[in-house]
Design a protein around this nucleic acid. Structure first.
Lengths: 193, 193
DNA sequence: GAATTTTTATGATATGAATCATAAACTAAC
DNA sequence: GTTAGTTTATGATTCATATCATAAAAATTC
């Protein structure tokens, strides 16, 4: 965990309260953000205000590197969905870390690869598949880091915003999936069996 | 250019003739592929045979790293769309290169970031936007590395496979865009002005 | 624990794009 | 230069999902 190292080096910790916008589309990237605690949501928004969830970042994770690395303005909003403690590294600090810390360097490459995997999978879904298939795929994906017997803490709206569907569609299709027996519901929540 | 270095080191060059499949979904990744010459298309295919173009790779570029780095089976097909000369590095060779060659290391990070940027942009499009907007975005993107006055060497089918639309839709919508004056056509080809 | 907000639910209707069908215009191959 | 294969074109019809409307249920806030 690089965050402890950063704290030890004396980097200041910034607090972002729930629902604070950390950065917006169009801004020129200045920092990479390491999450000491909390949760951040990365979303793009279209002209009609429809949101698409590009990623969710939790304690121990970092975000904002790609824009900084390729020096292009942000495409997305990042918003703290919980009160969060964050350490910001500017460009030089980040490049220094990348150079000095071989472990961080290879972690970054793995992290970027993982994100690419997720985005490729979702592009295939949004490009080629209908509502039912998309939802099965995202549910299975979310199941990956969830122990069996646990409940998926995700709303229908969030599923909609990850799959490019509308809430109503998600509600109807999840119900169908439950009727078919491919997902298990308890009080409306999706259960991993 | 790393390819010349690889050649100098004596790595063998493999030839793939046009339309040869280099790897398929489900296979366990074994190599990273450096393109000495030629062109490779990376596509995912759904149950009905509908294709989605995940990426196009040309001379000097490389592909196949993410799957190898995260050790997950391929999601996509890669197919030589031209006769191609390719140098394959296996896992140990690739990790060695990454460790020994700082320049390659940071290039990889930049390349992964760029691909993420493209995929995030397209996810937003496929998730939130209709045919017309999707096509404007992809056309503008393809214009980026095309000199003004040149023609986009891309078929309607390829635009369809990059945007998750159908050929007929692309044909109709591109025609609309031309009528509106937002794209310029010469003999049906899209011209950058 | 009453009030407010968020989430789930369900029906009716509209609509953008897929699908199906058929053909002309180009390009490449022999 | 005729044949075969792509690519572009256009109309008719279908279909999945968005949109609109309205409300019950659940969760949060005060």
């Amino acid at each position: 965990m690089y965050i402890q190292q950063l704290i030890d080096k004396g980097y200041p910790i910034r607090n972002f309260t729930k629902d604070t916008v950390i950065y917006e589309p169009g801004l020129q990237p200045k920092f990479v953000f390491f999450i000491k605690s909390g949760e951040i949501r990365m979303v793009t928004v279209n002209g009609d205000g429809k949101e698409f969830i590009q990623g969710i970042f939790k304690t121990g994770q970092y975000f904002g590197e790609p824009a900084l690395l390729v020096n292009r303005p942000y495409l997305a909003y990042t918003i703290a969905t919980k009160n969060s403690e964050i350490i910001q590294l500017n460009k030089t600090e980040f490049f220094q870390l990348l150079k000095d810390n071989a472990e961080f360097n290879s972690d970054l490459i793995r992290v970027l690869s993982n994100r690419l995997f997720y985005k490729s999978m979702m592009l295939e879904e949004l490009g080629n598949e209908k509502a039912e298939h998309r939802l099965q795929t995202i549910i299975n994906f979310l199941f990956l880091d969830l122990p069996a017997g646990e409940i998926l803490k995700v709303t229908r709206q969030e599923l909609a915003d990850m799959t490019g569907l509308r809430v109503e569609t998600v509600i109807r299709v999840v119900k169908q999936l439950a009727k078919k027996g491919v997902v298990q519901l308890t009080h409306g929540r999706i259960l991993k069996i």
